[in-house]
Protein backbone atom coordinates (compact mmCIF):
# COMPACT_ATOMS: atom_id res chain seq x y z
CA UNK A 1 0.00 0.00 0.00
CA UNK A 2 2.95 2.32 0.68
CA UNK A 3 4.13 4.64 -2.03
CA UNK A 4 7.71 4.50 -3.18
CA UNK A 5 9.46 7.83 -2.77
CA UNK A 6 12.31 9.46 -4.66
CA UNK A 7 13.71 12.97 -4.15
CA UNK A 8 11.19 14.31 -6.65
CA UNK A 9 8.08 12.72 -5.16
CA UNK A 10 8.51 13.70 -1.50
CA UNK A 11 5.91 16.09 -0.14
CA UNK A 12 7.39 19.14 1.65
CA UNK A 13 6.52 17.59 5.02
CA UNK A 14 8.16 14.28 4.12
CA UNK A 15 11.16 16.05 2.65
CA UNK A 16 11.81 17.91 5.91
CA UNK A 17 11.49 14.64 7.81
CA UNK A 18 13.84 12.77 5.46
CA UNK A 19 16.41 15.55 5.67
CA UNK A 20 16.35 15.38 9.46
CA UNK A 21 16.67 11.59 9.35
CA UNK A 22 19.61 11.76 6.95
CA UNK A 23 21.42 14.29 9.14
CA UNK A 24 21.03 11.96 12.11
CA UNK A 25 22.35 8.98 10.14
CA UNK A 26 25.19 10.88 8.51
CA UNK A 27 26.34 12.73 11.62
CA UNK A 28 26.30 9.59 13.78
CA UNK A 29 28.39 7.86 11.09
CA UNK A 30 31.03 10.55 10.62
CA UNK A 31 31.43 11.19 14.33
CA UNK A 32 31.86 7.54 15.35
CA UNK A 33 34.11 7.01 12.33
CA UNK A 34 36.23 9.96 13.45
CA UNK A 35 36.38 8.73 17.04
CA UNK A 36 37.33 5.17 16.12
CA UNK A 37 40.01 6.35 13.70
CA UNK A 38 41.72 8.15 16.58
CA UNK A 39 43.08 4.70 17.53
CA UNK A 40 44.56 4.02 14.08
CA UNK A 41 48.26 3.29 14.50
CA UNK A 42 48.15 2.98 18.29
CA UNK A 43 45.66 0.13 18.80
CA UNK A 44 46.13 -2.64 21.37
CA UNK A 45 47.69 -5.09 18.89
CA UNK A 46 48.60 -4.75 15.22
CA UNK A 47 45.89 -7.09 13.92
CA UNK A 48 43.12 -5.41 15.90
CA UNK A 49 44.42 -1.96 14.97
CA UNK A 50 43.87 -2.93 11.33
CA UNK A 51 40.40 -4.41 11.90
CA UNK A 52 39.15 -1.44 13.94
CA UNK A 53 40.52 1.04 11.38
CA UNK A 54 38.52 -0.70 8.67
CA UNK A 55 35.28 -0.28 10.58
CA UNK A 56 36.14 3.42 11.06
CA UNK A 57 36.68 3.81 7.31
CA UNK A 58 33.40 2.05 6.60
CA UNK A 59 31.51 4.47 8.84
CA UNK A 60 33.11 7.46 7.11
CA UNK A 61 32.01 5.93 3.81
CA UNK A 62 28.46 5.57 5.12
CA UNK A 63 28.53 9.21 6.21
CA UNK A 64 29.58 10.27 2.72
CA UNK A 65 26.75 8.21 1.20
CA UNK A 66 24.18 9.89 3.48
CA UNK A 67 25.65 13.36 2.89
CA UNK A 68 25.32 12.68 -0.83
CA UNK A 69 21.62 11.95 -0.35
CA UNK A 70 21.30 15.26 1.50
CA UNK A 71 23.04 17.07 -1.32
CA UNK A 72 20.55 15.49 -3.76
CA UNK A 73 17.82 17.09 -1.67
CA UNK A 74 19.36 20.52 -2.05
CA UNK A 75 21.62 20.66 1.02
CA UNK A 76 25.29 21.79 0.66
CA UNK A 77 27.95 19.45 -0.74
CA UNK A 78 29.19 16.60 1.48
CA UNK A 79 32.53 18.14 2.50
CA UNK A 80 30.87 21.40 3.47
CA UNK A 81 28.33 19.47 5.51
CA UNK A 82 31.04 17.64 7.41
CA UNK A 83 33.54 20.46 7.77
CA UNK A 84 31.66 23.76 7.80
CA UNK A 85 28.72 23.17 10.12
CA UNK A 86 28.97 24.07 13.81
CA UNK A 87 28.11 21.67 16.61
CA UNK A 88 24.62 23.13 17.01
CA UNK A 89 23.84 22.04 13.44
CA UNK A 90 24.94 18.45 14.01
CA UNK A 91 22.20 15.91 14.72
CA UNK A 92 24.34 13.07 16.13
CA UNK A 93 23.72 11.70 19.61
CA UNK A 94 26.16 12.38 22.45
CA UNK A 95 27.00 8.65 22.51
CA UNK A 96 29.08 8.74 19.31
CA UNK A 97 30.91 11.90 20.35
CA UNK A 98 32.12 10.48 23.69
CA UNK A 99 35.89 10.34 23.94
CA UNK A 100 37.73 7.12 24.76
CA UNK A 101 38.80 8.55 28.09
CA UNK A 102 37.59 7.25 31.44
CA UNK A 103 35.93 9.78 33.75
CA UNK A 104 38.99 9.99 36.01
CA UNK A 105 41.42 10.76 33.17
CA UNK A 106 42.86 13.88 34.73
CA UNK A 107 46.36 15.16 35.05
CA UNK A 108 49.10 16.47 32.85
CA UNK A 109 49.83 14.86 29.56
CA UNK A 110 53.42 14.85 28.32
CA UNK A 111 54.17 16.38 24.94
CA UNK A 112 54.34 13.42 22.55
CA UNK A 113 54.36 15.44 19.34
CA UNK A 114 50.87 14.35 18.48
CA UNK A 115 47.84 16.58 18.46
CA UNK A 116 46.62 17.25 22.03
CA UNK A 117 43.60 14.93 21.66
CA UNK A 118 45.83 12.08 20.59
CA UNK A 119 48.33 12.80 23.35
CA UNK A 120 45.52 12.41 25.87
CA UNK A 121 44.29 9.27 24.15
CA UNK A 122 47.76 7.74 24.24
CA UNK A 123 48.21 8.52 27.93
CA UNK A 124 44.68 7.97 29.29
CA UNK A 125 42.68 6.26 26.53
CA UNK A 126 40.82 3.10 27.44
CA UNK A 127 40.02 0.60 24.70
CA UNK A 128 37.20 -0.89 26.78
CA UNK A 129 35.16 2.28 26.28
CA UNK A 130 35.80 2.20 22.53
CA UNK A 131 34.92 -1.46 22.17
CA UNK A 132 31.82 -1.29 24.39
CA UNK A 133 30.58 1.74 22.48
CA UNK A 134 31.32 -0.04 19.22
CA UNK A 135 29.34 -3.10 20.32
CA UNK A 136 26.29 -1.11 21.46
CA UNK A 137 26.44 1.12 18.38
CA UNK A 138 26.83 -1.70 15.88
CA UNK A 139 23.90 -3.64 17.32
CA UNK A 140 21.73 -0.55 16.84
CA UNK A 141 23.21 0.24 13.43
CA UNK A 142 22.47 -3.24 12.13
CA UNK A 143 18.86 -3.19 13.34
CA UNK A 144 18.28 0.28 11.95
CA UNK A 145 19.87 -0.42 8.58
CA UNK A 146 18.10 -3.73 8.29
CA UNK A 147 14.77 -1.93 8.73
CA UNK A 148 15.84 0.76 6.24
CA UNK A 149 16.48 -1.88 3.59
CA UNK A 150 12.74 -1.83 3.02
CA UNK A 151 12.36 1.94 3.39
CA UNK A 152 9.93 3.52 0.97
CA UNK A 153 12.51 6.25 0.37
CA UNK A 154 14.31 4.40 -2.37
CA UNK A 155 17.75 6.05 -2.35
CA UNK A 156 18.03 5.25 1.37
CA UNK A 157 16.87 1.66 0.95
CA UNK A 158 19.51 1.22 -1.77
CA UNK A 159 22.30 2.36 0.56
CA UNK A 160 21.05 0.19 3.41
CA UNK A 161 21.14 -2.85 1.16
CA UNK A 162 24.58 -1.96 -0.18
CA UNK A 163 26.28 -1.69 3.22
CA UNK A 164 24.74 -4.85 4.64
CA UNK A 165 27.93 -6.92 4.22
CA UNK A 166 30.14 -4.31 5.90
CA UNK A 167 27.80 -4.12 8.86
CA UNK A 168 27.71 -7.89 9.14
CA UNK A 169 31.47 -7.84 9.65
CA UNK A 170 31.16 -5.00 12.20
CA UNK A 171 28.72 -7.19 14.09
CA UNK A 172 30.92 -10.32 13.97
CA UNK A 173 33.90 -8.31 15.13
CA UNK A 174 32.12 -6.44 17.93
CA UNK A 175 30.30 -9.47 19.34
CA UNK A 176 33.42 -11.62 19.28
CA UNK A 177 35.50 -8.95 20.99
CA UNK A 178 32.82 -8.29 23.59
CA UNK A 179 32.63 -11.99 24.48
CA UNK A 180 36.41 -12.35 24.66
CA UNK A 181 37.01 -9.21 26.70
CA UNK A 182 34.12 -9.68 29.09
CA UNK A 183 35.15 -13.25 29.88
CA UNK A 184 38.94 -12.98 29.62
CA UNK A 185 40.56 -11.84 32.85
CA UNK A 186 39.33 -10.24 36.07
CA UNK A 187 40.77 -6.97 34.85
CA UNK A 188 39.11 -7.13 31.44
CA UNK A 189 35.74 -8.09 32.97
CA UNK A 190 35.98 -5.14 35.33
CA UNK A 191 36.92 -2.70 32.59
CA UNK A 192 34.11 -3.86 30.32
CA UNK A 193 31.55 -3.59 33.12
CA UNK A 194 32.74 -0.08 33.98
CA UNK A 195 32.64 0.90 30.33
CA UNK A 196 29.10 -0.45 30.00
CA UNK A 197 27.97 1.50 33.05
CA UNK A 198 29.48 4.74 31.80
CA UNK A 199 28.35 4.65 28.17
CA UNK A 200 24.93 3.02 28.55
CA UNK A 201 22.89 6.20 29.32
CA UNK A 202 24.42 7.82 26.25
CA UNK A 203 23.72 4.71 24.14
CA UNK A 204 20.02 5.16 24.85
CA UNK A 205 20.40 8.56 23.22
CA UNK A 206 20.75 6.74 19.89
CA UNK A 207 16.96 6.40 20.07
CA UNK A 208 16.03 9.93 21.11
CA UNK A 209 12.52 10.51 19.75
CA UNK A 210 12.11 13.30 17.21
CA UNK A 211 9.13 15.27 15.96
CA UNK A 212 9.40 13.45 12.62
CA UNK A 213 9.16 9.89 13.97
CA UNK A 214 5.46 9.43 13.31
CA UNK A 215 5.63 10.98 9.84
CA UNK A 216 8.54 8.78 8.84
CA UNK A 217 6.98 5.63 10.27
CA UNK A 218 3.58 6.28 8.71
CA UNK A 219 5.15 6.84 5.31
CA UNK A 220 7.14 3.62 5.66
CA UNK A 221 10.40 5.55 5.40
CA UNK A 222 11.97 4.67 8.76
CA UNK A 223 10.99 2.74 11.89
CA UNK A 224 10.04 4.75 14.97
CA UNK A 225 12.85 5.36 17.46
CA UNK A 226 10.99 3.87 20.42
CA UNK A 227 10.26 0.75 18.46
CA UNK A 228 13.93 0.46 17.48
CA UNK A 229 15.04 0.97 21.07
CA UNK A 230 12.81 -1.86 22.31
CA UNK A 231 14.13 -4.15 19.60
CA UNK A 232 17.72 -3.18 20.48
CA UNK A 233 17.26 -3.86 24.19
CA UNK A 234 15.65 -7.19 23.43
CA UNK A 235 18.62 -8.00 21.24
CA UNK A 236 21.53 -6.95 23.46
CA UNK A 237 20.15 -8.22 26.77
CA UNK A 238 20.97 -11.90 26.17
CA UNK A 239 24.33 -10.99 24.61
CA UNK A 240 25.42 -8.95 27.63
CA UNK A 241 24.10 -11.58 30.03
CA UNK A 242 25.84 -14.31 28.06
CA UNK A 243 29.10 -12.41 28.45
CA UNK A 244 28.48 -12.13 32.20
CA UNK A 245 27.87 -8.38 32.21
CA UNK A 246 25.20 -6.62 34.28
CA UNK A 247 23.04 -4.42 32.06
CA UNK A 248 22.22 -1.13 33.78
CA UNK A 249 18.55 -0.67 34.63
CA UNK A 250 16.47 2.40 35.46
CA UNK A 251 18.78 4.56 33.45
CA UNK A 252 17.99 8.14 32.48
CA UNK A 253 18.84 8.40 28.76
CA UNK A 254 21.06 11.26 27.64
CA UNK A 255 19.05 13.13 25.01
CA UNK A 256 19.55 16.43 23.23
CA UNK A 257 21.83 15.55 20.34
CA UNK A 258 19.01 15.09 17.85
CA UNK A 259 17.95 18.66 18.60
CA UNK A 260 21.47 20.05 18.25
CA UNK A 261 22.18 20.31 21.97
CA UNK A 262 25.66 18.91 22.49
CA UNK A 263 28.30 18.83 25.18
CA UNK A 264 31.92 19.95 25.00
CA UNK A 265 33.08 16.67 23.54
CA UNK A 266 31.45 17.22 20.15
CA UNK A 267 32.63 20.83 20.07
CA UNK A 268 36.22 19.69 20.68
CA UNK A 269 35.90 16.87 18.18
CA UNK A 270 34.68 19.22 15.46
CA UNK A 271 37.43 21.71 16.24
CA UNK A 272 39.92 18.91 15.53
CA UNK A 273 38.11 17.67 12.47
CA UNK A 274 37.41 20.98 10.76
CA UNK A 275 40.65 22.79 11.59
CA UNK A 276 42.45 22.45 8.27
CA UNK A 277 39.43 22.51 5.96
CA UNK A 278 38.36 25.83 7.45
CA UNK A 279 41.75 27.39 6.72
CA UNK A 280 40.69 27.47 3.04
CA UNK A 281 37.04 26.50 2.96
CA UNK A 282 36.72 27.14 -0.76
CA UNK A 283 40.05 25.56 -1.64
CA UNK A 284 40.88 22.07 -2.80
CA UNK A 285 42.80 19.99 -0.33
Amino acid sequence: MSDKYTPDTLTPELKAAVIDLLYRLADDSIVIGHRNSEWTGIGPILEEDIAFSSTAQDKMGHALAFYNLLHELGEPKPDDLAFLRDAKDFRCCSFVAMSHLPANAEGDVPELMNNPTRNRLIVHGDWSISLMRQFLFVEADVLRMHALESSTYQPLAAIARKIRGELKYHLMHAESMLRHLATGTDESRKRMQQALNSVYPHALGLFEPTQHDKTLANAGIAPGETHLRDEWIEHITPLLAGAGLRQPTDVEPVFGGRKGRHGDELVALLADMQKIYRMEPTGTW
Binding site: E47, E48, A51
Partner: peptide, 20 residues
Protein backbone atom coordinates in the same frame (compact mmCIF):
# COMPACT_ATOMS: atom_id res chain seq x y z
CA UNK B 1 49.67 -15.40 8.62
CA UNK B 2 48.25 -13.62 11.64
CA UNK B 3 48.84 -13.78 15.36
CA UNK B 4 45.59 -14.60 17.11
CA UNK B 5 44.48 -16.22 20.36
CA UNK B 6 42.00 -18.55 18.66
CA UNK B 7 40.56 -19.45 15.27
CA UNK B 8 37.53 -17.18 15.64
CA UNK B 9 39.70 -14.13 16.23
CA UNK B 10 42.12 -15.26 13.52
CA UNK B 11 39.29 -15.15 10.97
CA UNK B 12 38.32 -11.61 12.04
CA UNK B 13 41.93 -10.45 11.82
CA UNK B 14 42.74 -12.27 8.57
CA UNK B 15 39.71 -10.77 6.86
CA UNK B 16 41.02 -7.24 7.34
CA UNK B 17 44.74 -7.93 7.00
CA UNK B 18 44.53 -10.01 3.83
CA UNK B 19 41.19 -9.34 2.15
CA UNK B 20 40.56 -5.64 2.61
Amino acid sequence: SVHAPDAETAILMAKEQFAR
